[in-house]
C-alpha cells in the first residue's frame, strides 16, 4: 500500500459486513473517492501516527474525517479517540463514532473524549445508508476544517 496516498475518509470498522455496507452507501452517494478502511484500532493508530505497517507515513497527511467503530478488538474506538485527541497533529480531525447500541455510557464517554458526532448503526439497512450518506456529506462538504 502506498503509505502516503491522500485519504479523505478513514473508515475504521472490524466487522467486514458493516464495512461493506458503509462503503456501498458512501459510493452510492458519490463520495467514494479516497476512502480507506482499516480493520481495527491498532491499524488506525499506526496509520494516523505513521508507525508499524504505516512507517513513513507523514503525520501531516491526515484524513478529513474518521468514521470510527466503537467496539473493536485490540484497541477499541474510545482508545483511538483518546489517542487522536491528545496528539496535536491529529486532535483537530473530525471523528464520527459508529456504534451498535444506544448504550448511554458509550455515548457519554465518547462526547467526553471529544467525538464530533455519533450515529447508531440501525438494523434497517436504508436507515444505515441514510445516516452514512449524511455524515459523509456533512463532514466532507459542509464542515470546514478548523
Amino acid at each position: 500500500m502506498d503509505v502516503n496516498k491522500t485519504v479523505e475518509i478513514l473508515l475504521v470498522e472490524d466487522n467486514d459486513h458493516d464495512a461493506e455496507m458503509a462503503l456501498r452507501s458512501l459510493k452510492r452517494n458519490k463520495i467514494s473517492n479516497k476512502i480507506t478502511r482499516l480493520k481495527d484500532g491498532e491499524e488506525a493508530l499506526e496509520f494516523l501516527f505513521g508507525t508499524g505497517d504505516f512507517e513513513g507515513r507523514s503525520v501531516h497527511n491526515q484524513p478529513r474525517v474518521i468514521l470510527l467503530d466503537l467496539k473493536m478488538p485490540k484497541v477499541d474506538g474510545l482508545e483511538v479517540l483518546k489517542a487522536v485527541r491528545s496528539n496535536k497533529d491529529t486532535q483537530n480531525i473530525p471523528i464520527v463514532m459508529l456504534t451498535s447500541s444506544k448504550e448511554e455510557r458509550d455515548v457519554v464517554d465518547g462526547y467526553k473524549l471529544g467525538v464530533n458526532s455519533y450515529i447508531v448503526k440501525p438494523v434497517e439497512f436504508n436507515s444505515f445508508m441514510e445516516a452514512v450518506k449524511e455524515i459523509g456529506y456533512y463532514w466532507l462538504i459542509l464542515n470546514e476544517l478548523p
Binding site: 459486513h17 458493516d18 455496507m21 466503537l70 467496539k71 451498535s100 448504550e103 448503526k121 439497512f125 444505515f128
Partner: peptide, 21 residues
C-alpha cells in the same frame, strides 16, 4: 447485556442489509 446489545445486533444488520442489497 452490553455485549448482547452490540454483538447480537451486528449479524441482524448484515441479514437486513444484505437482503436489501
Amino acid at each position: 447485556s452490553y455485549s448482547i446489545s452490540h454483538d447480537l445486533r451486528a449479524p441482524l444488520r448484515s441479514i437486513n442489509g444484505f437482503s436489501d442489497i
